[in-house]
Amino acid sequence: MSIQHFRVALIPFFAAFCLPVFAHPETLVKVKDAEDQLGARVGYIELDLNSGKILESFRPEERFPMMSTFKVLLCGAVLSRVDAGQEQLGRRIHYSQNDLVEYSPVTEKHLTDGMTVRELCSAAITMSDNTAANLLLTTIGGPKELTAFLHNMGDHVTRLDRWEPELNEAIPNDERDTTMPAAMATTLRKLLTGELLTLASRQQLIDWMEADKVAGPLLRSALPAGWFIADKSGASERGSRGIIAALGPDGKPSRIVVIYTTGSQATMDERNRQIAEIGASLIKHW
């Protein structure tokens, strides 16, 4: 067993022997300050990975656009099909120029040879490739089937209704393509630590998230040396920005953090900075 597999395998073990964890309200002060700075709603939740206990939250049951954070859930659904023998990570999918949508930095380079399901999930999570996400959605039956998968997991909140890039419209009070911080955190925890996926698939999912290449300005920018993070960011219209992450010190994840914001007129750089500052406060008061 590799060191990485050993780390994931021990998560349920540590759950039975973990020391108590305590929240620090200073982080919530920073979350509220971020709302003021951005002139927008901010949703935040911090969940103990082992016990599932909510350590701190702000607007945990308000809806926010999922943006590209849905791609982790999508690849979780794909992996569940792999575990059930209904899909193969090595299966090659061919597509055409007509399938390409905006922001497809990986898939646009493989029009001649296609990409495997594994490569598409990697592109969707690590590079947030939109065409990769659409091709993967097709393999499971579309957005409604992803919503059904989540319902079967016990998540009756999170929903995907449209494809890339339309799902990023982020219209106020529109429940399409939205989640709540509490629902997303719970669902992510189930995918990473529960029995829904095999150990190999849980490890694959967290490996893809750990290799995320487009979330550098967010929580990763505040991460001390030696800390672990596996994450997925998202951005969409109407000043929306978000990130879902499993992180912790000593090279292993111990908490789930979900941050969403929407309705801001601030620049992308400012939205990134506010999320990074929330992360810095979280780490300082860990």
Score class of each variant (00 low, 15 high):
residue 53 K to W: 06
residue 231 D to N: 02
residue 56 E to G: 08
residue 4 Q to D: 11
residue 19 L to R: 12
residue 152 N to C: 10
residue 106 V to A: 07
residue 241 R to A: 04
residue 198 T to K: 12
residue 106 V to D: 06
residue 36 D to A: 15
residue 19 L to P: 09
residue 210 E to Q: 12
residue 80 S to V: 10
residue 79 L to M: 11
residue 161 D to R: 01
residue 91 R to T: 05
residue 223 L to V: 13
residue 38 L to G: 05
residue 219 L to P: 01
residue 160 L to V: 10
residue 42 V to C: 05
residue 115 M to C: 05
residue 94 H to C: 06
residue 10 L to V: 11
residue 103 Y to K: 02
residue 175 E to W: 08
residue 97 Q to L: 14
residue 126 T to K: 04
residue 203 Q to D: 14
residue 67 M to A: 08
residue 60 P to G: 14
residue 254 S to H: 09
residue 103 Y to R: 02
residue 146 L to G: 01
residue 226 G to D: 07
residue 59 R to A: 01
residue 40 A to V: 06
residue 208 W to D: 02
residue 104 S to A: 05
residue 275 I to V: 07
residue 175 E to M: 12
residue 187 T to L: 04
residue 13 F to L: 09
residue 172 P to E: 13
residue 226 G to I: 00
residue 11 I to A: 15
residue 167 L to Q: 02
residue 168 N to W: 02
residue 85 G to Q: 13
residue 232 K to Q: 00
residue 140 I to N: 01
residue 269 D to H: 10
residue 103 Y to V: 05
residue 212 D to S: 03
residue 240 S to Q: 06
residue 72 V to L: 01
residue 202 R to V: 07
residue 20 P to D: 15
residue 111 L to V: 14
residue 270 E to V: 14
residue 219 L to S: 01
residue 18 C to Y: 07
residue 172 P to G: 09
residue 250 D to A: 09
residue 95 Y to S: 07
residue 250 D to W: 07
residue 166 E to V: 07
residue 90 G to L: 10
residue 57 S to H: 08
residue 75 C to V: 12
residue 11 I to D: 10
residue 182 A to R: 15
residue 34 A to S: 07
residue 47 L to V: 14
residue 144 K to G: 14
residue 198 T to N: 12
residue 3 I to V: 07
residue 213 K to Y: 07
residue 174 D to M: 03
residue 207 D to N: 09
residue 241 R to N: 06
residue 236 S to N: 10
residue 56 E to K: 05
residue 48 D to N: 03
residue 271 R to P: 07
residue 138 T to A: 15
residue 172 P to Y: 11
residue 250 D to T: 06
residue 190 K to V: 15
residue 18 C to G: 13
residue 16 A to P: 08
residue 125 I to L: 12
residue 241 R to Q: 05
residue 10 L to I: 13
residue 160 L to F: 06
residue 96 S to F: 12
residue 222 A to P: 05
residue 252 K to P: 01
residue 186 T to R: 13
residue 13 F to R: 11
residue 24 H to N: 01
residue 167 L to M: 12
residue 265 Q to E: 14
residue 163 W to H: 06
residue 183 A to L: 03
residue 6 F to D: 06
residue 239 G to D: 02
residue 189 R to T: 07
residue 219 L to H: 01
residue 11 I to H: 06
residue 161 D to G: 02
residue 201 S to T: 07
residue 88 Q to H: 13
residue 120 L to G: 00
residue 24 H to A: 07
residue 150 L to A: 08
residue 95 Y to H: 02
residue 167 L to E: 02
residue 271 R to G: 07
residue 130 N to D: 03
residue 3 I to N: 15
residue 102 E to S: 15
residue 53 K to R: 09
residue 284 K to Q: 14
residue 262 T to R: 08
residue 49 L to C: 01
residue 57 S to G: 07
residue 238 R to H: 14
residue 213 K to L: 12
residue 221 S to Q: 11
residue 276 A to S: 10
residue 150 L to Y: 03
residue 70 F to G: 03
residue 218 L to Y: 02
residue 255 R to C: 00
residue 9 A to S: 13
residue 250 D to M: 07
residue 188 L to F: 08
residue 33 D to G: 12
residue 123 A to T: 02
residue 237 E to K: 15
residue 237 E to L: 14
residue 193 T to A: 13
residue 82 V to A: 08
residue 214 V to T: 07
residue 161 D to A: 03
residue 83 D to H: 07
residue 279 G to L: 04
residue 179 T to Q: 00
residue 224 P to Y: 00
residue 270 E to A: 07
residue 250 D to C: 14
residue 179 T to K: 00
residue 243 I to W: 02
residue 88 Q to E: 13
residue 156 H to A: 08
residue 217 P to S: 09
residue 44 Y to V: 03
residue 206 I to T: 12
residue 216 G to V: 04
residue 94 H to V: 14
residue 266 A to T: 10
residue 283 I to S: 01
residue 178 T to A: 01
residue 221 S to T: 11
residue 9 A to L: 11
residue 158 T to S: 09
residue 226 G to S: 07
residue 113 D to E: 12
residue 254 S to F: 06
residue 22 F to S: 12
residue 149 F to Y: 11
residue 237 E to H: 13
residue 252 K to S: 11
residue 165 P to V: 06
residue 67 M to F: 01
residue 60 P to A: 15
residue 211 A to C: 09
residue 235 A to V: 03
residue 117 V to T: 06
residue 118 R to Q: 15
residue 208 W to S: 00
residue 88 Q to R: 12
residue 171 I to V: 13
residue 101 V to A: 08
residue 206 I to L: 14
residue 12 P to D: 07
residue 4 Q to E: 13
residue 65 P to E: 04
residue 150 L to P: 00
residue 19 L to A: 15
residue 220 R to N: 01
residue 192 L to W: 05
residue 175 E to K: 09
residue 151 H to E: 13
residue 247 L to A: 11
residue 1 M to I: 08
residue 214 V to C: 06
residue 57 S to D: 05
residue 73 L to G: 03
residue 110 H to A: 06
residue 117 V to I: 10
residue 240 S to E: 07
residue 55 L to T: 03
residue 181 P to A: 03
residue 167 L to A: 04
residue 140 I to F: 07
residue 96 S to H: 12
residue 167 L to H: 02
residue 183 A to G: 04
